[in-house]
Every structure is written in C-alpha cells, then in structure tokens.
Amino acid sequence: MRYSRRGMATERNKSAEAQQGFVYLPLFAGWLVPGAGHFLLRRWLRGSLLAVSIVAMFALGIAMQGKLYSGAHDILDALGLAGDLGNGLLFIVSRVAGLGADQVQVTTADYGTRFIVVAGLLNVISAVDAHNLRTGRKS
C-alpha cells in the first residue's frame, strides 16, 4: 500500500505558517478596538461590518443614557462589568469622559444598559473569531 505525503506536508506547512508570529495579536487588537483583529488579517469587509455593528450598539446604549458599570458591588454588577469590559477602549474612554448614566432612571436607559453590555459580549465573540482566523481554525 502506498501513501502520498504531499497533502500531509501541505497541511503541516499551512499549520506552521499559521503559528508564526504573535498569534494573540488579533485577539487583543480586536478586543481593544472593535473590528481591528479582522483588519490586521486584511478582512476589511468583515472587520468593517463588525466595527460598525458593535460601535453602533455601544453608541446607541450611551445615547439612551445606559449605565456604565464601575464596580462589582454584587453578582449582577460583576456580570455587567464583565460585559462592559468586553468593549475594550470604548468602555475605558467613555468612563474617563464621564459618558453614560450612574443610575438607571427611565425605561430606555435600561435598554441602553443592555445594549452596552451586549456590545461588549459581541466584541469578545468577534475578537475570538479573529484569533480563530489567525490560527487557521477558521477560514
């Protein structure tokens, strides 16, 4: 029985190429700036759509006077803070600039708070997607 190693060698080369350099760069870049991980990998359209979607959700949340979590006083605050931190620089800059509300006072502010948290969670998903593209786990 004969085995061809041509295909195997190609796969091994592809895998080796995918592991070269700092493979976590798209993950960190994508977390800090929405879509940046995909931009680093020259996925311009995907990165643009992700960036617009995540930034728009975050901006809508701020515009609705959504709350930006500042501390983990109880378990719900801790979960909200974890979601907010997923926004990366958007969250940090907004905290420094004093955007968002400290207390939820109207119904739309409650929607806004959810928009901000979900924008952070979606940003984490897109950063992980960029990492998967970088390592070759996804094409």
């Binding site: 759509l49 992700l50 959700m57 515009a63 006077q65 739309t108 929607y111 992980v128």
Partner: peptide
C-alpha cells in the same frame, strides 16, 4: 437623549447582533 419604543429597540438590537453572529458563526 435617544428614546426608541420597545419594538424599535428590539429591531435595532436584533439587526446588529445578527450581523455579528452571522460573520462569526
């Protein structure tokens, strides 16, 4: 301050979340 109706908020949420889900999944 932006004050959408509950249904408008649902539509906006669904639109943007669906884009991210589609691209990543």
């Amino acid at each position: 301050m932006f004050r959408p109706s509950h249904f408008a908020a649902v539509l906006l949420f669904a639109f943007f979340a669906s884009i991210v889900f589609a691209i990543t999944q």
